[in-house]
Amino acid sequence: MADFSDLVARAVSPSMSRDEREQVYTVVRQAVQRLQDREGLAADDPAIVLQRHLIEETIRDVEFDITRYLTLRKIEEARAAQDAEHAARISGRRR
């Protein structure tokens, strides 16, 4: 399942909008559904239910990672702006 998680993570990026990422997830869900259909198991088969759960868990984890990345980037940008403002104030006092 780690390979699958890596595949999903590589298919999306933080620069994509949420809608674009959701389109990728929809394609992933459809592909998994087709693979499951080929196996010929009932929709309520425990293996199928587990696979679907793992797919959703993977998508959730990828979204969490993207949110964390974007949040950290915003924090870094705010810190840089604050540092620049502070430096400007200090240089203004020295004149």
Rank of each mutant, 00 (worst) to 15 (best):
H86P: 07
A81D: 13
S91A: 15
M16K: 04
D6G: 08
R18W: 08
D6K: 13
V28S: 04
A78M: 06
G40D: 07
Q36I: 08
R79S: 07
V27R: 15
V62T: 01
R18E: 13
R34Q: 08
K74Q: 14
T71V: 09
R79N: 09
D37S: 09
Q51Y: 07
L7R: 15
R10K: 10
R89C: 12
A11K: 03
Y25P: 00
R18I: 08
R10V: 05
Q33G: 05
I59C: 01
A87N: 12
D3G: 12
Y69I: 04
R60S: 10
V62P: 00
R18A: 09
V12Q: 00
V27L: 13
Q82D: 12
R29M: 02
M16T: 04
E85Q: 15
L41E: 02
V8Y: 02
E22Y: 03
Q82R: 15
E76M: 03
A11C: 07
I90L: 12
L50Y: 07
M1A: 15
R21G: 02
A42F: 06
Q36W: 02
A87P: 06
A42T: 06
R34K: 09
K74A: 10
L54W: 05
L50A: 12
R60M: 03
E76I: 03
A31H: 10
E57N: 10
F4K: 05
E20A: 06
S17Y: 06
S91W: 14
E56D: 13
Y25F: 08
R93M: 13
R68A: 11
L70A: 06
E20G: 04
T58W: 01
I75H: 08
R94T: 13
Q33V: 03
A84Q: 14
D44G: 02
V32E: 03
E57W: 05
E20N: 02
R93C: 05
H53E: 12
Y25S: 00
R10F: 03
H86D: 15
M1R: 14
V62C: 01
Q36H: 04
E57V: 07
R89M: 15
